[in-house]
Computed example of a mutant assay.
Amino acid sequence: MSKQNDEDIPSRRRFLQQTLSIIPLAAAGGGLVSFAGQATSATSAGVSAHYVPTFFNNDEWRFILAAVDRLIPTDEYGPGAVSEGVPVYIDKQMELPYGYGHLWYMQPPFADAAPELGYQSPLAPRDTYRRGIKAVNDHCRQFFAKEFAALSQQQQESVLRELESGKLTFANVPGALFFAQLLDNAKEGYLADPMHGGNQTLASWKLIGFPGARADYQQTMDNPNKPYPLGPVSISGKRSV
């Protein structure tokens, strides 16, 4: 891609470029994302009205839809997490080895430690979601008389920022841990191949100029600092519009 100064790159595109540069398409890390532009409520191309979650119950599903819509909203730079199917991606992950915590060592002792030393929580991702969503909804009912999904966008963002900072935490699940997992999974789903449930229109790949599963880059390598001329292609052969 052509080089640009950071200040010339819209915040949403810069976030995705930085995310892709430090992680594979299954991502981790980062803080609450503030995108330029006013988010709009997304009609879902990715989250079908007929999709039935396999892990999340109705209350949890409403929370996931609302929360990821605030983390990666639809704006002038493209579709957001909900319309790209990120909630579907997260729901599917909960029934895979990742959701059960089978991909890493999960035996005691558990301790506060740097991320480089590995996952330290005794909670598998599915347990973190189940406890975290209930705790946040209970908190919102106590202070706002509504569950999280029924709050205004400003109130939702305030709750998410309190989780991120650790100001809002709970006895049975650390608020910051819950937020970090939610954001990690939202970014993963938004940048993943559509076969995993998210990025259904390849919008994120198109936004950052990632060509996807194309097999031949020789012509591009012979012409550095020029945008790749073709749209992205998924593993299954799906192409962006």
Rank of each mutant, 00 (worst) to 15 (best):
A176V: 13
D59F: 00
P122M: 10
L16Y: 00
Q18T: 03
L20E: 06
L202E: 02
P232D: 02
T54Q: 13
G175P: 03
H50V: 11
D75N: 15
F170C: 00
K167S: 07
R131I: 05
S121D: 08
A42P: 09
A39G: 13
S21W: 09
A213W: 12
S236G: 10
G175T: 01
D127E: 10
P115I: 07
Y100W: 08
E76Y: 05
P10W: 02
A213N: 05
Q4K: 09
V33Q: 06
Q142M: 04
S41Y: 11
I235Q: 05
A149H: 06
Q218I: 08
G99T: 01
S234G: 09
A171F: 06
L160V: 06
A111G: 03
M1C: 14
N185C: 04
K146L: 12
E84Y: 01
G30W: 01
G198C: 01
K134N: 12
E95Q: 15
E116S: 12
S165K: 05
D216F: 06
F35A: 10
R126V: 08
Y105G: 13
N199F: 03
R130D: 11
S83I: 03
E95M: 15
F148Q: 13
Y129R: 00
F35Q: 07
I90Q: 08
E76S: 14
H196K: 03
P174D: 11
R130L: 07
Q4S: 05
A186L: 06
M106S: 06
K92D: 14
Q181R: 10
L183Q: 09
N223K: 11
A215E: 14
Q38M: 09
L25D: 09
P115S: 15
A213K: 06
M221K: 09
F148R: 10
V233K: 15
T201M: 07
E147S: 13
T43D: 10
R62H: 14
